[in-house]
């Protein structure tokens, strides 16, 4: 379970304090698929960082009883002087997975060919993001955090990402923070709108989307 209780996040700025999150309450269990919609500047990125656990709330408490993913497709902790294979091994070691199985999975999924054994710094941006996606899908998290990016690359690769996401989310929780209303409609069972630093929950996804579009 992941639970946020009255979570506030404030930043000290030159012209005073800015409260970006002003009392977020949310509880997420395995199998819950929650979409969060919000306009630019509503505090989505801040919420992502708090949910990911990289930044602590200024006030309030977080109970974390499941292993949440890093924002899907993000290159956090990726060492660009190392090869794709070495980075895959790092993720495997970090999350206690079989090295060989993880290597095979990432090599196959990322479609990097011989570049899998080249340092990541020589990758094109497309290759990089394919590797990131493969690494994100390599770990069976209890909960997946999606910050906009759910897929990458051409239509075929993007489809592969979506298929894999379907597979991974079956038994997991999902928090999807997105502008993409189609994705939210397709993958989320509940949705909330982030406005004025708080989450407004709606009866169903369509209602949340309507409220978001009315903003």
């Amino acid at each position: 379970m992941l639970e946020l209780r009255n979570v506030w996040k404030s930043f000290e700025q030159r012209h005073g304090r800015k409260d970006v999150l002003r009392g977020i309450n949310v509880r997420l269990r395995r199998g819950d698929h929650l979409g969060i919609l919000g306009r630019n500047g509503a505090g989505k990125s801040t919420l992502v960082r708090v949910l990911a656990g990289v930044e602590a709330p200024t006030r309030g408490s977080i109970r974390r009883e499941m292993l949440m993913s890093w924002p899907l497709g993000g290159g956090y902790g990726i060492q660009s002087s190392l090869t794709g294979r070495n980075n895959a091994r790092f993720i495997a070691r970090l999350y206690g997975m079989s090295l060989s199985q993880t290597e095979v999975f990432v090599e196959d999924f990322s479609e990097l060919g011989r570049y899998f054994d080249e340092p990541v710094k020589y990758y094109s941006s497309g290759m990089r993001s394919r590797l990131m996606m493969a690494l994100s899908f390599a770990v069976d998290f209890d909960g997946y955090l999606v910050d906009e990016a759910l897929s990458t690359g051409d239509a075929r690769f993007a489809n592969k990402c979506l298929t894999m996401f379907e597979e991974r989310r079956k038994n997991a929780a999902v928090i999807m923070i997105s502008h993409n209303l189609n994705h939210v409609r397709r993958y989320c069972r509940t949705a909330a709108v982030l406005r004025n630093g708080i989450l407004e929950f709606y009866e169903d996804v369509d209602e949340a989307i309507a409220a978001y579009q009315g903003l």
Partner: peptide, 26 residues
């Protein structure tokens, strides 16, 4: 068709040793 890797369940000290050794190798 690809086999999806699975995490092994583990707790406390073993998990931390694993994390440190992953970081150390990196």
């Amino acid at each position: 068709s690809i086999e999806i890797p699975r995490r092994e369940a583990m707790g406390g000290a073993r998990a931390q040793i694993q994390v440190i050794s992953a970081l150390f190798m990196r």
